[in-house]
Simulated scan of single mutants.
Amino acid sequence: MIDMIIEQRRRSLGGGFEVGRVLPFAKRRMVGPFIFFDHMGPLDLAPGIDRSVDVRAHPHIGLSTVTYLFSGEIMHRDSLGYELPVRPHEVNWMTAGSGITHSERFEHARAHGDHLHGIQAWVALPDGMEEIDPSFSHHSGADLPQWEEAGVTGQLIAGSAYGLTAGAATHSPLFYAHLDMAPGSTAEIPGGYTERALYIATGAVEMDGMRHESGRMLVLGAGASRVKALEHAKVMVLGGEPVGERHLYWNFVSSSKDRLAQAAADWKAGRMKLPDADDKEFTPLPDEPKPPAPAMS
């Protein structure tokens, strides 16, 4: 039932802000179309925190980002002109397509202090849609269907599962849900998808007769499966149909290494529009590793 276990690896984003990096993993780059999965926090942010903690304006191509918080608040600004916070149990779904830039700032924490905890995932766009026009949508309430059953409170974040469909416009078959599980409760992991996984954000669960603690992703086989909470647990379930091989460099995703090199060159040369409020503060292209060289013609 469990094909692979992936432990989060701690990564610094600068300014004392660390995340748990889960995907990509050396032996498992993707689960369905999910190519990136970061566990943010839990982290207490004191009033007056330095702006170095903010994620300054940076670019994306070839993917959709989805931000989901258990607690805290992040202010989103992008090059399409959208500016609004994401709060717990809401979703910012941003499709980069041919190119978008955005920043993520902790302005609420700077003013009031905050307890930040959440997940950021990237979903690779399928063949033929990698260069679609960029777009942004914010979802809350009825857009994110909820249900309760035998000690489990669920919220569908994106895609279709549990007989429900979430509001964000997705571009390939997928599902993504948050299960809040009381001790002793059990939950089904949605079937009908080629690739599936669950991630334990808090608490501990049992699957295949083994105990699994927070910070661990279980990549599952195709068979029917259930998970049992051994203590109160927040569990993310996700998966979908593969979209084919994707290359990843920095914040760029593409089926073409040439396209990654072009995106890196565009950003370095200042050819990608910044959010209006971030036009003087942005994240430079990293020096190492070098972006992939264009293929020889």
Rank of each mutant, 00 (worst) to 15 (best):
A46L: 14
E90G: 15
L80C: 10
T202V: 00
V152T: 03
A233V: 02
T202L: 00
E149S: 11
Q155T: 04
R87D: 02
Q262M: 09
P47Q: 10
T194S: 15
Y82S: 14
P145G: 09
T95F: 11
W93L: 08
H108R: 11
A177K: 05
I132T: 06
G48W: 10
A224H: 06
P85M: 07
P126M: 02
M210F: 06
V66A: 15
H89Y: 11
I49N: 05
A166N: 12
P294A: 01
F282K: 02
L198S: 06
G192R: 07
K27D: 15
I132R: 07
L23G: 10
D3I: 01
F36C: 10
V19G: 00
H139E: 06
L174T: 06
H108D: 09
F37T: 03
A166Y: 12
E213A: 12
H247N: 04
T67A: 08
N251Y: 12
P284R: 13
I189M: 13
E107S: 12
M40I: 07
R56Y: 14
F136D: 08
A111G: 05
V55F: 13
G48N: 12
M1T: 08
K268L: 14
V205W: 00
F252Q: 01
Y249H: 14
R9F: 05
V205P: 05
P173N: 04
M217P: 01
I35N: 11
G14H: 10
M217C: 06
G113N: 03
Q262A: 09
A161Q: 09
S256R: 00
A161I: 03
P292K: 01
W250Y: 01
L198V: 14
P173I: 02
T194C: 13
E130S: 02
H138C: 03
T194D: 15
D287K: 15
A201L: 11
Y82G: 05
P289L: 03
R11H: 10
G128K: 03
M272R: 03
I74G: 04
R216F: 00
G20F: 08
I132G: 02
S140R: 12
L198K: 10
S79F: 06
F36G: 07
G62Q: 07
L45A: 01
A46I: 04
